[in-house]
């Protein structure tokens, strides 16, 4: 369980960290996240030299490469001292927890820098509820929705925040499914280092979710959804999946709130 630091920096002026997956593939999740942040009163900056959190290298044990990428990220976001909002529980956990392991043998000054950086990291839903104080998304979204809580967000405020906001949407019905606490098998590079295990875990997840016939599957991480949908596609199973920011945005749009 990756638990964020206790007294993280709050504030309405924020940096948005898009993540490599939103940069390359899930542009809509990033766009809708920024639109919602602004709608709920945040002032959003996007520092364009940002790249990635370094997680692919870190999870593979290449801590030296991961440190180089984290160093770059800290340098880019050193342009200001605002909180950093990320539309991914996993990338957030990388920067508030795992970065400390990557730099555990560094000198004290560096470790302090990494700790200080960790204090600025927020996952999108966690930030909406626990910093901006958003109580309600509202709007309408008539659908049965299955929520996948990504493993790396479990120790943070994300699952509770996401659920709280989803239940304020008219017409939205949350559906439970078996093994909702289980990993879907993506695990970043795990999916290509251990492809058989990963696929089998993914198939079990897709099966458990589709057994409940949801209209939509949502999560605070595009990565898990990409893996699940990729597996479902390969089996010819319909698997409508969207990042939770897209769902929030559509609900507000349907309700004429945006």
């Amino acid at each position: 369980m990756f638990v964020p630091p206790e007294n993280r920096i709050k504030g309405k002026k924020v940096n948005f960290m898009a993540t490599c997956l939103c940069d390359a593939i899930f542009d809509k999740a990033a766009i809708n996240s920024v639109e919602l942040l602004k709608k709920f009163g945040a002032e959003v900056e996007f520092l364009s030299n940002q790249t990635c959190c370094g997680q692919p290298a870190f999870n593979s044990g290449d801590f030296a490469s991961a440190r180089a990428v984290i160093e770059h990220t800290m340098k880019v976001f050193g342009a200001n001292d605002y909180p950093i909002v990320i539309p991914s529980g996993s990338c957030a956990a990388m920067l508030f927890h795992s970065s400390k392991i990557a730099f555990r043998d560094a000198d004290e000054a560096k470790r302090k820098e990494v700790d200080k950086f960790a204090d600025r990291i927020w996952e999108f839903c966690d930030y909406l509820v626990n910093v901006l104080g958003v109580e309600k998304i509202g709007g309408k979204f008539k659908a049965k929705v299955a929520v996948h809580n990504s493993c790396h967000s479990k120790g943070s405020g994300t699952p509770e925040a996401m659920k709280k906001l989803l239940t304020t949407i008219e017409g939205l019905e949350l559906v439970d499914f078996d093994g909702s606490d289980d990993c879907c098998g993506f695990g970043g590079t795990f999916s290509v280092v251990m492809p058989e295990l990963s696929a089998e875990m993914g198939e079990a997840k897709v099966k458990a979710i589709t057994a409940k016939n949801p209209d939509l599957i949502t999560a605070a991480d595009t990565s898990c959804l990409m893996h699940q949908k990729g597996i479902a596609d390969k089996h010819g199973i319909k698997y409508p999946a969207k990042h939770v920011a897209q769902l929030f945005y559509e609900a507000m749009k349907n309700g004429g709130l945006i």
Binding site: A18, A24, F46, A199, G202
Partner: peptide
């Protein structure tokens, strides 16, 4: 390679590289 191991059991979504950056430049 890694791509081959991914595609054996999965598809990938459409690539939209840079779209978010362009959007932010105009609307951010």
């Amino acid at each position: 390679g890694p791509a081959g191991r991914w595609f054996k059991s999965r598809t990938i979504p459409r690539i939209n590289g840079g779209n978010f950056r362009n959007w932010f430049k105009k609307n951010g």
